[in-house]
């Protein structure tokens, strides 16, 4: 919902003709990633808070292995994000008349970015479920962790739109490395966060 609202606000106020043709690829990439990251931040904070509010968090603690809980939440967040992206990105392209040269690279960038967003935020979501002032804290904690991914994503989308130097998909590789490192670290650290 947040994503849609921002998308409409952005496309309404900027339109597709106010930005000069040469700056389009870069500015559009920035806008798209701002929309993606902030809608992820507003949506994913709920994943563990929900369990806590429903009172099911302790039942899960008693019955499930921490790694299983982590992976479950990770995949849930991932499906949520991919669903979100599958709505937002086509709409964004349509509304803003976003011209993309290398479509495969662009899609890979968006999808691997979605993996990265989910991987970077899941442990943080588990932590804030046990803290006060949850919503604001989640953004404050996640944003620095997501920043490298966001910068990579912007760069990658810009490159895909221009269509220069796309061989080997350099940014996709970086973001996949990010995903792998974050998931490994999270698997190691999550049990510490999860168990009393």
């Amino acid at each position: 919902m947040f994503a849609l609202t921002t998308l409409i606000a952005v496309s309404f106020s900027i339109g597709s003709f106010r930005i000069g043709e040469t700056e389009k690829p870069f500015l559009y990439a920035v806008l798209l990633w701002i929309i993606l990251v902030f809608s992820a931040l507003s949506g994913l904070s709920r994943s563990f808070v929900k369990e806590r509010e429903a009172g099911t968090i302790d039942v899960l603690r008693l019955s499930a292995r921490p790694q299983a809980v982590f992976l479950g939440k990770l995949f849930f967040n991932l499906t949520l994000l991919l669903a979100l992206e599958s709505i937002i990105v086509p709409l964004f392209i349509l509304l803003m008349e976003y011209k993309i040269e290398s479509f495969g690279f662009f899609a890979a960038m968006i999808i691997s970015g979605g993996f990265g967003l989910a991987a970077g935020t899941t442990v943080v979501a588990a932590m804030i479920a046990q803290a006060s002032a949850r919503g604001a804290l989640f953004s404050a904690l996640s944003f620095p962790l997501l920043l490298p991914l966001m910068i990579t994503g912007i760069k990658g989308c810009e490159r895909a739109a221009i269509g220069v130097g796309v061989t080997g998909w350099p940014e996709v590789k970086i973001s996949l490395a990010y995903v792998i490192i974050m998931i490994t670290m999270s698997l190691l650290l999550f049990p510490l966060v999860w168990e009393e």
Binding site: V123, V124, L141, L145, L147, P148, I174, M182, L189
Partner: peptide, 17 residues
């Protein structure tokens, strides 16, 4: 946990920025 997680992103900053 948070500081270790944040530290894990540092190589990317060096790489990306």
């Amino acid at each position: 946990v948070y500081s270790i997680l944040a530290f894990a992103t540092v190589p990317f900053l060096v790489f990306v920025v």
